[in-house]
């Protein structure tokens, strides 16, 4: 399909397809209002009067992510895991990282400082995600940047010095996943053990399902039940996943 025929086909296809879609959209309401279900989440997400319906998270999106529609997010995380597997499956078996060394003390110290700084901000974004914008995925992306920055700035040879290699990254990633899966399964196990009603990934107790994770860490600091630990798990998973992808995609092939 070359030349004008291709263009004509393109124009025809786009014109007909978009007019069909526009026809569908003509019946849609004008923009600018929030549908009742959205208002429901906004109203209930941190509403002390109605604790049957709350998610104990002032950030409604975070509440949706790991409470109201947590089961979606669980498998969204697994989809991301498939993405990592894709890269690992195709590009694994390459040379292992070897320490090349030879950096000056100043460079090493600066790298460590920057590294720790970025990691800290990743943790902060994850942990405070119930009150501010952020979350496990965002924190994980930033965490990966800590490693990627080191690779870009100081070459991959520096990573072993920071005790990073692929195997450890995999293990850390799996620990993160195991944390998420474990928190998902706990209510189910509780239900099996006690015979009471509890649902997978249940966060706060409800009138019809009494099981719940503690809302507060200690006395006052809000944990959102399972939200913060599960976000930490996701952060590790995502951060390590991105690091693995980046390491594998930038490595040279082994000669064999």
């Amino acid at each position: 399909m070359s030349g004008w025929r291709g263009s004509l086909l393109g124009v025809l296809f786009v014109a007909s397809m978009s007019s069909i879609l526009v026809y569908a959209f003509l019946g849609y309401p004008e923009l600018g209002f929030v549908r009742p279900l959205g208002e429901f989440y906004l109203f209930n997400t941190y509403n002390f009067e109605n604790q049957d319906w709350w998610s104990a998270s002032p950030n409604a999106v975070t509440g949706l992510l790991w409470d109201y529609r947590g089961y979606d997010t669980l498998y969204e995380t697994m989809v991301f895991y498939v993405g990592i597997v894709a890269v690992a499956m195709f590009f694994e078996g390459h040379a292992k990282l070897t320490k090349t060394g030879g950096m000056t003390v100043i460079v090493r110290a600066t790298a460590r400082m920057v590294f720790v700084f970025i990691l800290t901000s990743a943790f902060a974004i994850t942990i405070f995600s119930i009150k501010t914008p952020g979350g496990g995925f965002q924190g994980g992306s930033i965490m990966a940047i800590a490693y990627i920055a080191i690779i870009v700035a100081l070459s991959k040879g520096f990573l072993p010095e920071m005790n990073i290699d692929l195997e450890k990254a995999h293990i850390a990633k799996i620990i993160g996943l195991a944390l998420i899966a474990g928190l998902t399964i706990v209510p189910v196990v509780y239900s099996l053990a006690s015979g009471s009603v509890a649902y997978a990934l249940q966060n706060q107790p409800k009138a019809w399902a009494p099981f719940g994770y503690p809302t507060y860490l200690g006395l006052t600091s809000l944990s959102g039940g399972l939200i913060i630990p599960i976000q930490l798990g996701e952060m590790v998973h995502v951060g390590m996943g991105f690091t693995i992808m980046f390491l594998l995609l930038t490595m040279k092939e082994r000669e064999d």
């Binding site: 929030v34 279900l37 989440y41 997400t45 999106v61 949706l64 992510l65 529609r69 969204e76």
Partner: peptide
């Protein structure tokens, strides 16, 4: 609407 944001994040 947080729900729309949620879908997009996912």
């Amino acid at each position: 609407d947080p729900l729309a944001h949620y879908f997009v994040v996912t």
